[in-house]
Nucleic acid binder design. Structure first.
Lengths: 343, 343
DNA sequence: TATACTTACTGAAACGGTTCAGCACGATGA
DNA sequence: TCATCGTGCTGAACCGTTTCAGTAAGTATA
């Protein structure tokens, strides 16, 4: 295991001090003047030795790593690396390249919050993009420490926190409005976790859309997302009732697919008997049959915005707005249609 | 910008030397004995100051970062962060967590190979998982430098190189065999780049399967994957001919979808008029209509295996086998059926 | 001929840890 | 009483850079 070529090696070969090598290689012509001959000698020595400066040593002295961390939820019912995550990463990568930052991934299922914090605070990253729930204990710790981070796809209203999120409330509204306009009056929802802000916001949007149209929001038409324990449990019962929903607004496309599958098995044709609106507008929603109407988040844009906001924080710039909320749009496809006549 | 709490601060507060702090915090009881009182004092001081050791300083002295890089192709017709990439990352993350390594992402579109190398060789990572084509100039550089890395989903037969790959040749074979067994004799292919080993292997498997069944491989039945410039150009012409293929083996599912779409527009029903076999068996292939028969790679497994191999290399273990090749399977769905009678 | 100003370069300290060798002290054994 | 040993701790060197303050020599200015 031969050890790395250091700046000292280059210095010796070029018969100058390592300081000179540093100045030449970093092109700091403004600060220190180096003669052309010396410069050439240094450059050649570096070239011949195949010298690569140690980023680690640099980080240590500069107190800056030029790297940002992306922190994911480490466990969830859905896979970490779904299409959603892909879009997120694309946005983050793009923005990071532009801003000149490298990326670290923190999806590690460490034992304790403390261990996770060690990872983030050990100087290897200048800041973090956090895709955890805004109430995660770790988030509070980061706030208290004054560590530069930006939440995305979630919220935390602490005045010291920054976040970029979709307008989930609006998402619930436009999905529900669309169904109401199609004549549906009994609109069910398959909702996400009660712990998650996004989930609650979507639900509130759904409820308010109903109520502002004079439709009562019925608890018994709201189902929880399936888990390994209770996979679509309530759906069969609900659809067996005479006052069954004629449409569903569903937490996410990933959940909408199996729901559509189950409804078909139960003999309901979509959209003739029941309409479905999903959330995320995954690429697959264009391929499935019927093509799924779905609320679309500007995932890449949000990811880019969050990255830019983080970089601004790292650079100590004044953040004009610490909260950014992006509007949502509805991709109308063929899984939604006029309400059936059930009289 | 208050500077970080250092080991020195803890030492002062606990009234010991920083060496003692280091020993206590690292639990090096075997090497150096510390009294219970001192230990307690140090621990408390560290706790009260909220001390987090600098990973950077550690890396510098240990000459080891506990981090591996994942290097992606920086440009391609397909999106970086497709479902394929998701699966790859899931496998890599899992294995990295188990092995105790952190992850850096290198998808950066740097100007030159040299700049990219700087990134990898600057000591921030102990090794790299490389998802570039095996002939990428960067790969050769890494080999020459003796940098620990493992290629995956591609190959390089240099004896100093390590790789983990799918048996693409076999993939081409089983896809084609399946079609032949269904009675197809005129089987087209939409092939990938001529530069990529995987692509050539798949093609060779396809060709050999044909020929070992007494069917000539016809150049005019082989199309290139669509690019922004020539989107599915040759397909229309090919299908207009009387000796058109009755089946296609297609480079990837991502390409298969638009091909299926176009065939439908041209009035061909799948699988009645034409059968399609894709490659990757994406989740969407279960959702699209008809459900797409597709060759499946053990993506996560390969990613895990590559990660483990890399860690072994980093740890200086003797690598038993520097090449691992994983078999492929065929997910038979409804896009393939008996050959139509075209007489 | 003394003074100031460039030019070209360098020594030493710092960044925040780890490791090695060694030291002071009290207890033990001969 | 002296050598030996174990215990508990520390000084100094080191990892590979950058930065600050300075120095020595040559050149222009007065």
């Amino acid at each position: 295991m031969k050890s790395r070529t250091t700046i000292q090696d280059v210095a010796k070969k070029a018969m100058v001090s390592k300081v000179t090598v540093s100045y030449v290689l970093n092109g700091r012509d403004a600060d220190v003047r180096i003669s052309q001959e010396t410069r050439a000698r240094v450059l050649q020595a570096a070239e011949e030795l195949g010298y690569r400066p140690s980023g680690v040593a640099r980080m240590l002295v500069n107190q800056r790593s030029g790297t940002i961390a992306v922190v994911f939820q480490y466990a969830s019912y859905f896979s970490h690396w779904s299409s959603f995550t892909s879009d997120v990463m694309r946005g983050v990568c793009e923005a990071a390249v532009v801003e000149g930052f490298d990326l670290m991934l923190h999806t590690k299922a460490t034992e304790t919050v403390d261990q996770e914090l060690n990872q983030l605070l050990d100087g290897r990253v200048d800041g973090a993009l956090v895709l955890r729930d805004g109430n995660d204990p770790m988030v509070q710790q980061l706030i208290n420490r004054g560590f530069p981070f930006v939440l995305f796809f979630t919220r935390n209203y602490d005045p010291r926190a920054c976040f970029v999120d979709s307008d989930n409330y609006m998402g619930g509204q436009i999905a529900t409005d669309h169904l109401i306009k199609l004549g549906h009056r009994r609109i069910g929802m398959v909702r996400g976790s009660h712990q998650s802000t996004s989930s609650n916001d979507r639900f509130n949007g759904y409820r308010d859309a109903l109520e502002s149209n004079g439709i009562a929001c019925r608890e018994d038409h709201v189902l929880a997302i399936p888990t390994p324990d209770s996979p679509l449990g309530g759906l069969d019962d609900l659809m067996a009732r005479p006052d069954r929903p004629t449409a569903f607004f569903i937490w996410s496309d990933d959940v909408a697919y199996p729901v559509m599958g189950r409804l078909k098995e139960l003999g309901f044709e979509c959209p003739r008997d029941v309409s479905i609106v999903g959330f995320d507008s995954l690429p697959s929603s264009e391929l499935c049959s019927p093509r799924l109407t779905s609320v679309k988040q500007a995932i890449e844009e949000i990811a880019r915005a969050a990255t830019q906001m983080l970089v601004a924080r790292i650079n100590g710039e004044d953040i004009r707005q610490r909260q950014q909320i992006f509007p949502l749009t509805l991709d109308i496809r063929s899984s939604t249609g006029p309400a059936p006549d059930l009289t």
